[in-house]
C-alpha cells in the first residue's frame, strides 16, 4: 500500500506500543490480534526501529498480511491485516 492509502485506511484496532522496547511491540500485537476479526486492519505505534522488521516477519509466519509503515515524528505506525 502507498503512504497515502495507509494514512486513510480504516483500522479496527490501534495499539500504542511506544512505551516498550523489543520484544514489547510484538507482544502487544500478539495480545491484540485475538480481539479483531479476520480481514480487519490493525495499526501498531512503535518507537522501536526493530518493529519495522519484526512485524512483517510475524505476519509472514502467521499468514497475516503486512501492509506497510508510516513514519511519524519520533515514532512510526505499522499496518497489518488479519488473515
Amino acid at each position: 500500500m502507498t503512504q497515502d492509502e495507509l494514512k486513510s485506511v480504516v483500522v479496527a484496532k490501534s495499539i500504542d506500543a511506544r512505551g516498550t522496547a523489543c520484544p514489547g511491540p510484538l507482544l502487544e500485537a500478539k495480545k491484540a490480534i485475538g480481539t479483531i476479526a479476520s480481514g480487519d486492519i490493525m495499526e501498531i505505534y512503535s518507537a522501536d526501529e526493530g518493529t519495522k522488521q519484526d512485524i512483517p516477519k510475524w505476519c509472514t509466519k502467521q499468514g497475516h498480511e503486512y501492509l506497510g509503515s508510516v513514519d511519524e515524528n519520533g515514532y512510526f505506525k505499522v499496518y497489518m491485516k488479519k488473515k
Binding site: C22, P23, L26, L27, A29, K30, D54, K57, W58, K61, Q62
Partner: peptide, 11 residues
C-alpha cells in the same frame, strides 16, 4: 528470555 518471548509471541 527475549528470544523466548519473541518466539512465543509468534506462536
Amino acid at each position: 528470555m527475549v528470544i523466548s518471548i519473541a518466539a512465543a509471541a509468534m506462536d
